[in-house]
């Protein structure tokens, strides 16, 4: 059985998907890519928006999409370092 992803890993996966998609992704596609239930997905999206990791924008056709903020990029950049600290100090 695959190991259940931790909160930190889910956040990383969501941000990574947006980054790999030219830093722009629509909510429905992001939901599929995140592999989460709609309720969980909403919770994560709220948290990421609230913490300013992502920003909700609208395109020319008034359709919603998400982009990473500087803080979101910083999280992705430091993710391995964060993981390394957690493993090294047994946190």
């Amino acid at each position: 059985m695959p190991k259940k992803r931790e909160r930190l890993d889910v956040i990383h996966d969501i941000l990574k998907v947006i980054q790999d998609n030219n830093n722009s992704m629509k909510p429905t596609r992001l939901l599929y890519a995140s592999n989460l239930s709609p309720q969980m997905f909403k919770d994560y999206l709220d948290e990421l928006t609230q913490k300013k990791f992502i920003i909700e924008l609208q395109d020319g056709k008034k359709k919603k999409y998400y982009s990473l903020t500087d803080k979101g990029f910083e999280f992705l950049q430091k993710y391995q370092e964060i993981r390394s600290f957690i493993e090294n100090f047994g946190l």
Partner: peptide, 17 residues
């Protein structure tokens, strides 16, 4: 250092240590 990582990740282990 740990506060910096806590602020970025909200991972409580950083805060406690």
């Amino acid at each position: 250092k740990f506060l910096k990582y806590y602020r970025l990740s909200s991972y409580r282990g950083f805060r406690y240590l």
